[in-house]
Amino acid sequence: MSIEVNGNVFETDEEGYLATLSDWSPDIAAAMANEDDCDLGDNHWEVINFLRNYYEEYQIAPAVRVLTKAIGKKLGADKGNSKYLYELFPYGPAKQACKYAGLPKPTGCV
């Protein structure tokens, strides 16, 4: 599978996760979101940028419980809960947000 953005084609796996981490750009994230009928706002970008920073530091995508807790710590308790994150990313915060962030699919359940 692949995704086309601004005339360039980028390889993805069968679930739409970017094959090469370094291919990522905000435009790719927006294009992936577009395919899911999702408009990326500031709140989405906060989570996506958090995930990219986390991955940069630890080389793994965080489990959803870890993500939720860390978001709460960094962005405030009103955002550090699964209700908020599921509203932003209805397909599952870890899965969907990781995909837009260009990260591999996280291991674990959600």
Binding site: Y54, E57, Y58, Q59, I60, P62, A63, V66, K69, A70
Partner: peptide, 14 residues
């Protein structure tokens, strides 16, 4: 191969 050593520092976040 993947260098997984940075993930040991993530254990704290888990």
């Amino acid at each position: 191969v993947k260098n997984f050593s940075p993930a040991f520092r993530a254990l704290e976040t888990y």
